[in-house]
Design a binder for these strands. Structure first.
Lengths: 343, 343
DNA sequence: ATGAAAGCGCTAACAA
DNA sequence: TTGTTAGCGCTTTCAT
């Protein structure tokens, strides 16, 4: 009854009456091991309560066996980047998709937040040290330097969303313009005749794409001018934008908000102003996150399959880790309209 | 220009003209190193682009240098435990608190979800292998076996919330009964005379405590009977509960919901029924999460300082990791009422 | 099919 | 103050 030290391969080998190498083979499921010995080893493992030492294994295999999920952005002006990130259901969905994908592989993501250049440098350093074998990058702004830093440091990485400036890196993205077109056409098909849109921050490519997609589709249907108000992807931004829209363009009868959070804010303002939704004003959101259902009325929105996209991101990263030379690839997902009550 | 291999201490030592040990000392900030040599080493580090190998370091220090944040619960009946966890702003706040606390230490949490006994066993195994030095445990249900498993496996762990059955483990918690009392007294002080409550799942100690705290306070003020409806801590549960309350106890004029999500659901139902809030019905929530402000009307609620609690949890864990023998401790936080519009 | 042995890159005694 | 050296626990040739 002496368990002063956690058992090692050596201990198991001694108990099983074989060599370290054999135990290692059994533990790692390598074939070419006599069935009897396998049994003996397994018994010895159970008896000793052996658990392989990850650090030792990593040292020789040069694999951490984990990946990082890093959210990069700027604590621009406002405080607590951290809170705003974790309060955003979008990141929750990304995390959910990643965790779910990794789970069957027995892997877990390392959660990192990089909200300043210092921290980003630090994060890259950690990755170079082998804290993780690669990184899943989610940027809150267009011109995030982190992807480039990873490429330069030779850290395998995959992005959520195409980078603002082209760099040789894999990414997963949505056909944003297409989604916005769908929203416009849906609104038009419902009979709306004066459309407007609440955009995301316009330094984000996705915001740009959704805006131009919407504008193009509307123009193609004969409405030459679309009132636009820039939002911030948050509920308060949606509220402010809707207020302005109501004040400056009172005849608008259909709004496309570039994400659900802003749509939710818009809905709230409309209720406050006594405007009936969807009768007086139809509202379409974007994302189809968990709160789309919680909206009042439930939100008609353009679905972005975030969880699937996140999983694909992880899949790509794992592939890049396995085959270091591999060329970057992009995978684009298709949006679709989910019809509920708000439009 | 040969960088075929990532540089090691050895390489740096050679370039700096010193021994590995000296480089190690400089890199790890140990005093007792000649200033000139320090400078030389630093130059060599920069020149070679050296980054310490974490696995090698861990192997000898027996420290992973990271901790795990594990959410444990049951995919009970309903699918996707993962999504529901990440959709819940409560977990977002926990994560935010942990990340924020760890950041200055250059550490990052490993995100783990354990929604079945198999996975829990797997998680404990990973921890024993040194995937992390300890675990922060957040359980979605009262009778979670994971804390006990950690204790038995000798894995340092700290809980969010007191375990249902007493075990020797540190935890952080809130004075739930006290918070509920505050809610009751606030409602009473506003002039409400017929109070009711929507509870959390009653197998969770926190739900029990909030319920009894509320009931006691109400009784102390002369109302002998409090209608209660059991909810599920989610918005849909809050809606269903409010519907029942309205149907079975139409005269109720003040409701205490055991969390904000359910309060939000209640608000929605009240709006649907044309009941004015707070005039016809006052509503108090619990948590003061990000959506308390997003509610319509903004939610008066009992604040639980989740981020601070999460940070404290991390602090305790780190202490336990440093001093393995240390006795378990509990830290209880105080709630307070945050007054907005709903009550 | 199995074992012996050589490291992986680092820290920490211990010597000097 | 600095260097020498002995491992940390594992995987993986290379013999056998």
């Amino acid at each position: 009854m002496k368990d002063r030290r956690t058992p090692t391969l050596e201990d198991v080998a001694r108990v099983a009456g074989v060599s370290r190498a054999t135990v290692s083979r059994v533990v790692n499921g390598v074939r070419n091991v006599d069935v009897e010995l396998q049994e003996a080893v397994r018994r010895a493992v159970a008896e000793t309560g052996y658990a392989p030492n990850r650090a030792a294994r990593s040292l020789v295999t040069r694999r951490a066996g984990s990946i990082a999920l890093v959210v990069s952005g700027a604590g621009d002006g406002d405080r607590d980047f951290t809170s705003s990130v974790f309060a955003d259901p979008f990141f929750g969905r990304v995390a959910a998709g990643v965790v779910e994908f990794l789970r069957p592989l027995g892997m877990h993501p390392l959660l990192m937040l990089a909200d300043s250049d210092d921290v980003r440098a630090e994060v890259v350093a950690q990755l170079r040290q082998g804290a993780a074998d690669g990184a899943l990058l989610v940027s809150t702004h267009g011109e995030d330097p982190l992807p480039e830093m990873c490429v330069r440091a030779d850290v395998p990485a995959v992005l959520f969303a195409r980078p603002a400036t082209p760099i040789p890196i894999s990414y997963v993205d949505l056909a944003h313009a297409e989604g916005a077109r769908l929203a416009a056409e849906y609104l038009l098909s419902r009979g709306c005749r004066r459309l407007a849109t609440i955009t995301g921050p316009l330094d984000v490519p996705a915001s740009q794409d959704r805006l131009s997609g919407f504008r193009d589709a509307v123009a193609r249907h004969g409405q030459p001018y679309v009132p636009i108000v820039e939002g911030n992807f948050r509920q308060d931004g949606g509220e402010a934008a809707m207020e302005r829209l109501l004040a400056e363009h009172p005849k608008v009868d259909g709004v496309f908000a570039a994400n659900d959070l802003m749509a939710q804010g818009a809905l709230r303002v409309l209720r406050r102003h006594g405007r009936e939704v969807p009768t007086d004003m139809a509202v379409v959101g974007f994302d189809d996150g968990p709160q789309a259902l919680a909206c009042d009325p439930p939100l008609t929105t353009v679905r972005q399959p975030v969880e699937d996209m996140a999983a694909e991101m992880a899949r790509l990263l794992l592939k890049h880790i396995e085959e270091p030379g591999h060329d970057p690839v992009s995978v684009i997902f298709d949006p679709k309209v989910v019809t509920r009550t708000s439009a």
